[in-house]
C-alpha cells in the first residue's frame, strides 16, 4: 500500500507537471507491470502504456531513403495523369461539339424536309382542288345546258 501511496504522490506531481524524467520512468515502469492494480490506479494504466509504446516507435534505418524516393517519384505520376485527363477532356469536348453540330444539322435538315414536303403536299392539293372545282362547274354547266335544251325541245313540241 505504501508503494501505491508513492505512486499516487508521483501521479499528483505528474498531473501538476512537477515530475522529473526519472519519476516519469518510475510511473511508466509501474504501470507496465502485469500485476493487478487497484481500480483508482488501473484507469491510468492505458495512458502510461500508450506513452511508453509511442516512445518505443522508432523510424527504420532506410526511412529517409524511402521518403526521398517517394518524393522524387511523386511528381511524375500526377503529371502523367493530369496530362492524360487533359487530353481526354479535350477530345471529349471536341466530340461533344461535333455531336452537337451534327445533331443541329440533322434536325435542321429534317425540319427543312418536312417543310418541303408540306409545301409539296399543299401544291398537289391546290392542283387537285382547282381541277376538281372546274370539272364540277363544267358538269353543272352541262346539266344546265341539257335542261335548257330539254325546255326548248318541250316548248317546240308544244
Amino acid at each position: 500500500m505504501d508503494n501505491y501511496k508513492y505512486i499516487e504522490e508521483l501521479l499528483d506531481k505528474y498531473w501538476t507537471c512537477e515530475t522529473n524524467l526519472e519519476e516519469e520512468t518510475i510511473l511508466r515502469e509501474f504501470f507496465s507491470q502485469e500485476q493487478e492494480l487497484p481500480a483508482h490506479l488501473q484507469q491510468y494504466r492505458h495512458l502510461f502504456i500508450y506513452l511508453q509504446e509511442e516512445q518505443e516507435i522508432k523510424l527504420s534505418a532506410d526511412f529517409e531513403a524511402q521518403l526521398l524516393e517517394k518524393i522524387t517519384a511523386q511528381p511524375r505520376t500526377p503529371h502523367f495523369v493530369s496530362r492524360t485527363s487533359y487530353r481526354t477532356s479535350f477530345f471529349f469536348k471536341i466530340a461533344a461539339g461535333l455531336l452537337l453540330l451534327l445533331s443541329i444539322g440533322f434536325f435542321a435538315q429534317q425540319h427543312q424536309k418536312i417543310q418541303e414536303q408540306t409545301a409539296a403536299r399543299e401544291t398537289v392539293i391546290t392542283a387537285i382542288g382547282m381541277i376538281a372545282e372546274n370539272l364540277q362547274q363544267g358538269e353543272t354547266m352541262i346539266d344546265e345546258g341539257l335542261k335548257q335544251l330539254e325546255t326548248l325541245y318541250i316548248n317546240n313540241k308544244n
Binding site: 392539293i125 392542283a127 387537285i128 382542288g129 382547282m130 381541277i131 376538281a132 372545282e133 370539272l135 364540277q136
Partner: peptide
C-alpha cells in the same frame, strides 16, 4: 397546272371528292 404520270381519266371526276375532304 401540268400533271404527268399514268393518270386514270375516270378518276379525275373523283378528285372533287378528294378536294372536298381536304376543304
Amino acid at each position: 397546272i401540268n400533271i404527268t404520270g399514268n393518270i386514270s381519266i375516270g378518276n379525275l371526276g373523283q378528285l372533287s371528292n378528294l378536294s372536298k375532304s381536304f376543304k
